[in-house]
Design a protein around this nucleic acid. Structure first.
Length: 928
RNA sequence: GCGGGAAUUGCCAAGUCUGGUUAAAGGCGCUGGACUUAGAAUCCAGUCUCAUAGGAGUUCGGGAGUUCAAAUCUCCCUUCCCGCACCA
């Protein structure tokens, strides 16, 4: 007997696969509809594989293998998002070369990935810091610059003091840096932006054509933040210019009683200079800029403001509106100013109360009258217009359009659409990223690097001090000659956001060696778009939005014909593990305290609570050590069986144990010879064949939905049945078929052991390339299904009775099949119940049949039960004789199991009182 | 505040769309038994309550309803998780 040794088997097959290059794919333009692109999100090459990776790749690989077996030409590549801060921080902290550091990490992670047995086409491997790759980042940038999609602007931007660089809006989450969780500050800087806003509408529309989780679509749609409203022009008293503000509530225009500007608005300083307000303004301004944008917009923060002595004019009624500045108005949003309607907006209401500004009601509720003196909060619901001139009496919803139209006539406003989405800030003040290919010349201005001079490479003569952008320390990098006039000029020293790298990498995989263009159109049009994308939810609005934007820009550059990059998206869940938790402090124990029994602070006993695996808590499990102990197949099996891909996975050591045992058991089942082999084919063979086909069907259906856990569940149950079947003695041919099919079914989950068994079974060629099993619909009959259940139910019943009567030693088991007339009865009753509901009426009807009369008591009982629960009664597909025959066929199973004499009888041949209980599909059972 | 998701028998978790075959799959854990010197492994049985004949009772966060029939449909409530947040 061969022992299952995962290490030998796994190494063997990983080498065989590599040697035979079986996962390397070529586009096959004749099989356009049979291509399938499976992709996991571009990973950052940290040196150590963690559980999240293992999960991500196991899901992707299982699915890719499944699709390959189904006959698809599967593109399944891997590469590394290798630019980014960790390398640079390592350079700062330990003086290592970021390039070397990153390369060695890639090497390390790749070795670890290979141990999992992933079926990647490694010939397509790419990485971001490869000049042949980032050259095309720069190429894209220049194309966008030409089209006016890349521009440079001064503005307040998000600054992470820990990462020492600016961040895009998407990368600030709850006021903190998405990477390091540091509070983000505001800085006024000149930076490069990409005009993602141009595509706002299309980015929103495109969500309708992708198969993504609703949650992710919703998050993107909220982020894009489309709102329909109006631009209203408020003239400034004593000036020509107007302040053009956006509002969704044009219906409340008559209720505006003041305006609020952001303190940073440039007009404010003009207005207050040389006035009495100046001193107070300076003070206020200084205070406000100290707060960051997130503090300012925090709901709990006090709304502060001041009047600045200036007025705007309400264009609809020419009323004078005092202009205030307020900390809660953000300069970058809209016009940096708002019209304030205290009666119908809570924020404005509070501000007006604070500064004694009049409150004017312009919408009255349907069922009562508002009194401005007594209002304690703003009325924000719908109602009828009031105090609004010619619009009085109108429903406020309709008034939005009516008032906007009026403004259009007055040329003081128009309907418009506003998006919350901001342009993408891509400048980063860091070294380890893709250089922005721009040169600043005193006479020629902003000059793009020529295409033939790409790539602009990173210089090596830099110092990593941890202060300022290292690129500025290079003597050769920044000082260049202007490409236009050849005079000395300065190179842009910022690099690009690394999210640029991941915005088009999935196209590069289709043509990783492309020389003249980022990728060739026919190849991307063949492979694209990604059919199944798998990754974490954390990129719902960062990478996934940027990549969609790039896809549309590239399409408009005629690089491909695709509108959306990722057709189907799976966001995998987190991996959690129980960890010490203090219910009093509502906090998890830190790494150092995790082995204590009680909370250090309050002395409360720790309880165990599930939490995301993290290094800081110290509840991580190293996937490599799991693979060392149990092998990659067991690790994969556990991680795929532990939870459905999209839900959180609770790590448990017992779970891995189970996976390992299961695989060993499976190995034994297939490889150990059978004791008893039959030539003839009996009912047991028919049933196992039925169950096999049922299993193939449901596993296939589950895998199509990437319900991998469900498919494994089905496999486990089948293998348990197959084990029983093997012990009972098998029909050789049927057993061979079962073994072959189950190995095929298990292959996407545990590829190594299944390849090994496939070979042991004497098959030629790789299981990895074998066709997915089909199932025989003809075997999946109602009759077989019924028999399968009848067998199992009967055995359950016997067990049940045994359990109750507590007899350990039975001598005789009688299975008594119901009389023929009972089969007719159930079928008659089921018909009757359709047309009448009354117990008496039904009995009366049934008793018309003389034969039934003899058994009136029994029938009355049955009718009662049946009326109580119709669904429990089904018309049997078998006749009494067929059922009798079935039991005689499976008689030996009962003999083996209960080791006693088995009698199969018809009801009429039994003298037992209980025989009357026999029903179709539910024989009477008597134990002695 | 707005929006989304969830709550199932010790734990994890199916089932909910399409009501009935559901006291509710499967796994873990636990209990008993077989095997064994013992343990491990393996196998069998049990695991809501009661029950010496397959029964009965009470269950799927709580409450109300629809139905012959509800974990599943409708309404209300509670709790938890997540996203956005003075969005003009």
């Amino acid at each position: 007997m061969v022992e299952y040794d995962p290490h030998i088997i796994e190494k063997k097959w990983q080498e065989n696969w590599e040697k035979s290059k079986i996962f390397e794919v070529k586009e096959d333009l004749t099989k356009k509809n049979l291509k399938y692109y499976v992709l996991e999100m571009y990973p950052y090459p940290s040196s150590e594989l963690h559980m999240g990776h293992l999960r991500n790749y196991s899901i992707g690989d299982a699915f890719a293998r499944y699709k390959r077996m189904c006959g698809f030409n599967v593109l399944y590549p891997m590469g590394y998002d290798s630019f980014g801060l960790p390398a640079e921080n390592a350079a700062i902290d330990h003086g290592v070369d970021p390039r070397k550091w990153t390369n060695s990490n890639i090497n390390a992670i790749q070795q670890q990935q290979k141990r999992i047995g992933l079926s990647y086409d490694w010939t397509r491997m790419i990485y971001s810091h490869d000049p042949n790759y980032f050259k095309w980042d720069q190429w894209f940038f220049l194309k966008m610059f030409e089209k006016g999609l890349a521009y440079r602007e001064n503005s307040y931007v998000n600054w992470c003091p820990d990462c020492v660089t600016v961040l895009a809006n998407e990368q600030v989450q709850g006021g903190k840096c998405w990477r390091c969780n540091t509070d983000v500050e505001q800085k006024f800087l000149t930076q490069w932006f990409l005009k993602i806003r141009v595509y706002a509408e299309e980015l929103l529309e495109g969500l309708n054509i992708v198969d993504w989780p609703e949650k992710v679509k919703l998050m993107q749609s909220n982020w894009i933040g489309k709102s329909e409203g109006s631009i209203i022009k408020f003239p400034i008293e004593g000036e020509e210019r107007t302040i053009d503000i956006f509002t969704t509530r044009a219906d409340t225009l008559f209720g505006a009683t003041f305006m609020v500007f952001a303190p940073e608005h440039p007009w404010i300083r003009e207005w207050v200079e040389n006035t009495n307000y100046f001193k107070e303004f300076e003070q206020f301004y200084a205070e406000v800029v100290k707060q960051n944008k997130f503090e300012r917009t925090d709901l709990d923060i006090e709304k502060k403001g001041m009047f600045i002595g200036k007025y705007a004019i309400n264009p609809i009624n020419n009323e004078k509106l005092p202009i205030y500045i307020g900390n809660f108005v953000i300069y970058e949003y809209g016009a940096g100013a708002v019209m304030a309607v205290p009666a119908h907006d809570q924020r404005d209401f509070e501000f007006a109360k604070e500064y004694n500004i009049p409150i004017k009601i312009v919408i009255q509720p349907y069922d009562y009258i508002l009194n401005p003196e007594k209002m304690t909060r703003a009325y924000v619901s719908d109602g009828i217009l009031f105090n609004s001139g010619e619009f009085n009496g109108m429903e406020n919803r309709n008034a939005i359009n009516a008032i906007t139209e009026k403004l259009e006539q007055l040329e003081m406003g128009f309907a418009t659409i506003n998006y919350k989405l901001r342009d993408w800030l891509i400048s980063r003040q860091r070294y380890w990223g893709c250089p922005i290919p721009i040169i600043y010349c005193e006479s020629c201005g902003t000059v793009p690097v020529a295409y033939e001079d790409l790539p602009v490479k990173l210089p090596k003569d830099v110092k990593f001090t941890g202060k300022g952008n290292p690129l500025k320390t290079s003597k050769i990098y920044a000082n260049v000659n202007c490409p236009k006039c050849n005079k000395p000029a300065k190179r842009e020293t910022d690099t690009m956001d690394t999210f640029i790298d991941s915005s088009w990498y999935f196209f590069r995989y289709c043509d990783p060696e492309s020389k003249d263009l980022p990728y060739r159109k026919n190849l991307v049009d063949y492979w694209g778009n990604v059919d199944q994308y798998i990754g974490g939810i954390e990129h719902a609005v960062m990478h996934l939005l940027y990549a969609r934007f790039f896809t549309k820009v590239a399409r408009d550059l005629n690089l491909h014909s695709l509108d959306e990059p990722f057709q189907r998206l799976l966001t995998q869940g987190m991996i959690n593990k129980a960890h010490a938790y203090c219910p009093m402090c509502e906090a998890f124990a830190m790494k150092a305290d995790m082995h204590n029994k009680e909370c250090k602070r309050c002395g409360t006993k720790y309880i165990l609570k599930s939490v995301k695996m993290s290094k800081s808590l110290g509840n991580t499990v190293d996937p490599i050590s799991i693979m060392d102990n149990y092998g990659a197949d067991a690790a994969r099996f556990f991680i795929l069986f532990g939870a459905s891909p999209k839900s959180g996975l609770e790590w448990s050591d017992e779970g891995v144990d189970f996976a390992f045992k299961f695989i060993k058991k499976f190995f034994t089942l297939i490889c150990e010879p059978v004791d008893k082999i039959r030539k003839e084919r009996n009912i047991r063979d028919i049933l196992i064949e039925y169950y096999l086909n049922r299993t193939i069907k449901s596993v296939t259906e589950s895998l199509d939905k990437i319900a991998i856990r469900d498919s494994i569940n089905e496999i486990i149950q089948f293998i348990s049945e197959l084990n029983k079947y093997k012990l009972e003695g098998v029909n050789k041919k049927i057993f061979e078929i079962c073994k072959e099919k189950i190995v095929l079914l298990l292959h996407p989950i545990t590829p190594h052991i299944s390849e090994e068994i496939w070979e042991t079974l004497g098959n030629q060629g790789f299981l990895s390339l074998a066709p997915w099993p089909s199932y025989n619909e003809n075997v999946l009959t109602v009759e077989n299904d019924y028999k399968w259940k009848l067998l199992n139910n009967t055995m359950d019943s016997v067990n049940n009775i045994l359990h109750i009567i507590k007899i350990t030693d039975i001598k005789e088991l009688s299975i008594i099949v119901a009389e023929d007339w009972k089969y007719n009865l159930v079928s008659d009753l089921l018909e009757l119940v359709e047309i009448m509901e009354d117990h008496k009426q039904i009995i009366k009807e049934v008793m018309k049949n003389d034969y039934y009369k003899k058994n009136s008591k029994f029938i009355s009982q049955i009718v009662g039960n049946l009326l109580k629960n119709r669904g429990k009664y089904v018309r049997s597909p078998l006749t009494a004789d067929e059922e009798y025959l079935f039991f005689t066929e499976i008689k030996s199973l009962f003999e083996k199991k209960y080791l006693c004499t088995i009698n199969i009888l018809y009801e009429r041949d039994s003298h037992e009182k209980k025989a009357i209980q026999a029903l179709p599909g539910r024989p009477a059972i008597i134990l002695k």
